[in-house]
């Protein structure tokens, strides 16, 4: 991954920083500058809680280039508490225990390494939510 491309998106990948639409209040991730609901300009930063639930999931046995050594790994669509869906890997979980609707929370992990001397790319993954007293 190119350094500039990596740098541009650190806020999103490390903190789940997206946007909130000043017109309709829609919360947007990934950031896209124009609200997909009302088409109003939406550049106000908004940081998501990182809490959500599994909308769908799959375990990958044949990986794309650069991901071979992680096989098998589980990917998911996660419905964030604030509304948007996000695509990410699941971690710290037995694949057979994953279910649609399972509560999960965001953690920061290595997404990929670009070769022996290449860059380490960090970003969000999701793990089963740790029960906390309310």
């Amino acid at each position: 991954m190119e350094v500039a491309r990596f740098w541009r998106t650190t806020g999103q990948r490390y903190q789940l920083t997206g946007e909130i639409c000043p017109n309709c209040g829609n919360k947007i991730f990934p950031p896209r500058d124009v609200c997909p609901t009302c088409e109003h300009e939406a550049k106000t930063a908004y940081t998501f809680s990182g809490k959500g639930e599994v909308y769908s999931y799959s375990t990958i046995h044949a990986a794309p280039e650069g991901f071979e050594k992680y096989v098998p790994y589980t990917v998911a669509l996660v419905r964030l508490q604030e509304g948007p869906l996000i695509t990410a890997q699941l971690t710290d979980v037995d694949t057979h225990e994953v279910k649609v609707g399972m509560p999960v929370e965001m953690v920061t992990r290595v997404l990929r390494e670009d070769g022996e001397r290449g860059m380490l790319v960090y970003g969000y993954k999701f793990r089963p939510a740790v029960a906390s007293p309310r």
Binding site: I60, A62, P64, V75, L111, R112
Partner: peptide
């Protein structure tokens, strides 16, 4: 795996492919 990665360019590079998704896994979801 080269073809798999090339095909994944039709997905969202920063928000799908970067997380290790291929077209097979997107369809699996």
């Amino acid at each position: 795996n080269t073809v798999t990665s090339a095909l994944a360019m039709a997905a969202d590079g920063d928000y799908e492919a970067l997380h290790g998704l291929s077209f097979v896994s997107i369809n699996a979801l």
